[in-house]
Simulated assay, not measured.
Amino acid sequence: MKGKSIRKSAWSTYWKLHDQRKRLVERLKGYLDGLPPKTRRRTVLAMLAAFAALALYTFGKAVYDIGRNDGSRMVTDHAGQVELSLKPEVSDNFTPYYNNMYGTDEE
C-alpha cells in the first residue's frame, strides 16, 4: 500500500506543477498580447541581436582557438591490435539478427 500512496502523491505533485505552469503561460501570453506592435518588434529585434552577437562570439572564439594547445602537440601513436568479437556459442537465446550478423559457416 505504501507504493500506491507514493505514486498517488507523485502524480498529485506533477498535476499541481502542470496546472501552475499552464496558469503562468496564460498570464505571460496575456501580458505579451497586450503589448503594442512597436514594442513587440523592438523586443524581438533585441533578442535577435543578442543571439547573433553570442553566436558570432562563439564562432570567432572557436576559430581563434583552432590549433592552440598551449604549445603542446597531439600525440599520434599506433592504435595497436584491435580485438574483434568472436562468434558466440550456439544457443536458443540469440535473436535472428545476431545469428545472421556473422554470416554462415559455409562461405
Rank of each mutant, 00 (worst) to 15 (best):
F59A: 15
R21H: 06
T13Y: 01
T95Q: 07
R68V: 04
S9W: 02
D33C: 06
F51K: 15
A49P: 03
V75K: 12
E106W: 11
G30E: 05
D19Y: 04
Y31P: 00
F51P: 02
D105Y: 07
V25Y: 03
Y64W: 14
K16I: 02
A62F: 09
A10D: 01
A53G: 10
S5E: 10
V82Q: 09
E89S: 11
D33V: 01
M101T: 02
D92I: 06
D33F: 05
G80V: 02
K4H: 09
K29V: 05
V25F: 03
E26P: 00
G103N: 07
E106A: 15
K22N: 08
L32N: 08
V75N: 06
Y57V: 13
H78W: 09
R42G: 14
S12G: 13
Y97A: 13
Y102H: 12
T95G: 11
A10P: 00
A50H: 13
G67F: 03
N69I: 01
Y98P: 00
V63R: 13
R7S: 11
A52D: 14
R73G: 07
M1R: 14
V25R: 10
M101Q: 08
K8T: 05
V25I: 14
F51G: 10
M74I: 12
F51Q: 14
N69C: 00
M101N: 02
L86I: 10
V63S: 04
L17E: 08
Y14C: 02
E26I: 03
N93Y: 10
G34M: 03
L86Y: 03
N100I: 02
G30C: 02
V25E: 12
R42M: 11
A55T: 13
D70H: 10
K29A: 05
E106H: 11
S91W: 02
K29T: 07
T43F: 12
P96R: 10
R27S: 05
R21E: 06
P37M: 04
W15A: 00
T95S: 15
G30T: 08
T76M: 08
G67L: 03
M47N: 12
V75W: 01
D92F: 03
A52M: 14
V44G: 06
K8Q: 05
K29F: 00
G34K: 01
Y57N: 08
T95V: 02
N99D: 09
R42P: 00
K61Y: 14
L28N: 04
